[in-house]
Write a protein that binds this DNA or RNA. Structure first.
Length: 302
DNA sequence: AAGATTACCTGAAGGC
DNA sequence: TGCCTTCAGGTAATCT
């Protein structure tokens, strides 16, 4: 289940393998994974060079050069590409953009981007993107993921309601948005509008590390406890990034390999197993409609 | 109006 | 060899 670390893993692989390459084609087998008509996506990206890949929360954002002629004449080799000079020629639109086009992707539950030699797409591969020598497949068993075209460098409406990235947000700003809320802390950590990137797995891990019960209202926690929760959230996300993310159901990285963080999980999926700190059997509870795993002794309800 | 519930999907797992 | 139900959870839409 892709959360922030898994998306970061995909973004890093895209940068390594595709940066500086030209978009040459798109094959769509199931159009439902595109918010726009595939024809429009194809036309918008044709011959454009991928100049940047970044991540905001669980969104993956691919940035394509705006000047097709300059991009097409430039070398495709990232080493000799010469950095930003290729496309940043000084011409800008009225809004400060340079006609760049973003392709935004949210993997939702089961989305995967795969770049494997001799890969044979199965029935779950809904789109194939060609990059001038490299072929990238979008696979999504449950078809929840979405590609969305965002033209002209504008911040997409689809991301306007998304809060700051969890790894970027400063405590003071985060604190003022949740300090008075009566909702369970777990529900607020999952709310992408407050801070984006945490999903069910890493919220349980963060609350275990912080020693806080998932149903605790945010308003019942003091400033230092909330500070610890945000700190633990960032720590567990950064650790998971270093381990290539978590493979619980079917996440694999760009090259079809599973993440290594699953064996590091201390709470998620360990119902009935002994707490790694105090050996009390972990319990499971539904909070905000999601299964939650916690230690009743280390994370006492209040 | 915040908080809760449901829809969207498919495959795995369990009951009979 | 099957059929049916339940569960999993990110986000948007829809409730109370």
């Amino acid at each position: 289940l892709p959360e922030l670390p898994e998306v970061e893993s995909v973004a890093a692989a895209l940068r390594l393998n595709l940066l500086g390459r030209r978009f040459t084609g798109l094959r769509v087998r199931f159009g439902g994974v595109f918010a726009d008509r595939p024809r429009r996506v194809r036309r918008a990206l044709r011959d454009r060079t991928l100049i940047d890949v970044h991540r905001h929360g669980k969104y993956l954002i691919m940035n394509f050069a705006g000047d097709v002629a300059a991009a097409a004449s430039g070398p495709a080799d990232p080493v000799s590409r010469g950095g930003a000079g290729l496309v940043r020629d000084g011409r800008s639109g009225a809004d400060g953009s340079r006609g760049e086009t973003h392709l935004m992707l949210h993997l939702r539950m089961t989305g995967q981007l795969l770049c494997l030699p001799d890969y044979r797409p199965d029935k779950h591969v809904h789109a194939t993107l060609d990059f001038d020598g490299r072929r990238v497949h979008y696979r999504d068993m449950r078809k929840f993921g979405r590609f969305q075209l965002v033209e002209d460098g504008r911040r997409p409406a689809a991301i306007a309601h998304v809060g700051p990235d969890v790894l970027e947000v400063r405590f003071a700003k985060w604190y003022e948005r949740i300090a008075d809320r009566r909702a369970p802390i777990k529900a607020l950590l999952l709310d992408q509008g407050i801070a984006a990137g945490l999903g069910n797995i890493y919220v349980d891990e963060a609350l275990f590390r912080a020693g806080v019960h998932p149903t605790t209202p945010a308003a019942a926690l003091d400033r230092d406890e909330l500070r610890a929760i945000l700190r633990c959230s960032k720590d567990v996300l950064r650790l998971a990034i270093r381990h290539g993310g978590t493979t619980f159901v079917n996440f694999t990285n760009f090259h079809g390999k599973p993440g290594n963080f699953r064996r590091k999980l201390r709470a998620y999926g360990r119902t009935g197993e002994p707490c790694l700190r105090c050996h009390t059997p972990l319990e499971r509870l539904v909070v905000g409609g999601r299964s939650s795993h916690f230690c009743p002794r280390c994370q006492p309800a209040r």
